[in-house]
Design a protein around this nucleic acid. Structure first.
Lengths: 210, 210
DNA sequence: AGGTACGTAACGAGCGTTCGGTATGTAAGG
DNA sequence: CCTTACATACCGAACGCTCGTTACGTACCT
């Protein structure tokens, strides 16, 4: 039986913490074994003991990112429909330091993800999941009459709207990260409300063009 | 008087071309002096002759990106107002291979830009310019009655709407880059039209909340 | 004893950068 | 018109550094 001293999982958790801190202030481009080791005050050999290769550590770093995203504290979901969607969006935006760090890491991972096929596919999946999380709120909003279109509106239509909502959110994230002074929490919140208000409105009866 | 043989600027243009090709298939993370040198079949010493340091070459690479963005072929501006805005947005999105390459490079530069203060400020400026390019279209659209609000609508309001439009566009860019199959040109175009249609609509008279 | 958990030290590769050398041109002097 | 002088353009090799990775040694636990 292995000694299982000090608990292997606990150690990996320590590594996760160090990986996260390193990512937060150097980005993925600055994620090196030595940087992580220095952050937690150990040797690179120790890291290799828990992650056989750098690639394994990068993959783990992305897991940490996803876990932190999933487990982050969230504001109360006020209700179904648009109000819930609003809360969801506000939980994504960089309104507090922690959110900023998480989004910064996220954006910084895109360089790697675009260069590596597998990581790119993971990223695409993450977006698909994000849209799936948005969709129910849109459907509820339609049922509640907060959004035009009936409950039996085309599935493709809802997908597309979910993608638009996600696009707005992440596009705002990027701008806010680069220019936090121009996008303080109040502005971001106001933009979310403005965006949601535009969704609420009745559309003209016919589409402008194809 | 300096010899000014072979035209220095022409050489720098050759370097720009090689830098662009390197960026397009390796991203900013893969932008190394040796890679660029290999792409144009010269030595790294030659590169240092035209760019004293790697940082200078990175800055130049961002200039190339901006120049390529500014000089890209664009579809005809059909008119003022929303139609012009629509054309502007379609010119941003990755609808053709060239656009995809340009956007890929753009997104890949964010990792570096977030880690380096100066580059980050440049990026913020680029976004400010992008919003400034959008704003006139919004004002025209308001004058034409295509958008709610009068011509004397708050400047801050227009700024915010411009930021929302840019957010939508770049958020869609990122999703499309990672999942081109789910976001073919037709879907992207349809999303733009849907987004613009939602702007067109009359808003409810009062805001939902703060 | 033997396996686990590290630290230490080193390897080879790749990086940005530096340096010396060799062309190749213009400019000046006889 | 040839020569000398000098700056530019560029190559090839090397330096010093950091990277990921490996090898080896040691302390500890069972």
């Amino acid at each position: 039986m292995p000694p299982a001293r000090g608990d292997r999982d606990a150690r990996r958790e320590d590594v996760s913490e160090a990986v996260w801190r390193t990512l937060a202030d150097k980005g993925f481009g600055g994620l090196t074994l030595r940087a992580v080791a220095a952050t937690m005050g150990v040797s690179t050999g120790m890291l290799m003991h828990y992650f056989p290769t750098k690639h394994a550590l990068v993959v783990h770093a992305l897991d940490v990112l996803e876990k932190r995203t999933a487990d982050r504290p969230r504001r109360d979901r006020p209700a179904e429909g648009l109000a819930a969607l609003r809360a969801t969006l506000l939980d994504i935006l960089p309104l507090a330091p922690d959110d900023t760090a998480r989004n910064r890491v996220w954006v910084s991972s895109w360089d790697l993800a675009l260069a590596d096929g597998d990581l790119g596919a993971d990223q695409a999946d993450r977006y698909a999941r994000m849209r799936s999380a948005i969709r129910p709120h849109l459907e509820a909003a339609r049922r509640l009459g907060e959004l035009p279109g009936s409950a039996d509106t085309d599935r493709a239509d809802t997908d597309q709207l979910a993608a638009t909502v996600v696009a707005f959110a992440h596009g705002l994230v990027v701008q806010a990260l680069f220019d936090p002074e121009r996008f303080p929490p109040a502005v971001q919140t106001s933009m979310v409300d403005g965006f949601l208000r535009s969704l609420t409105a009745e559309r003209p009866t016919r589409a402008p063009d194809a």
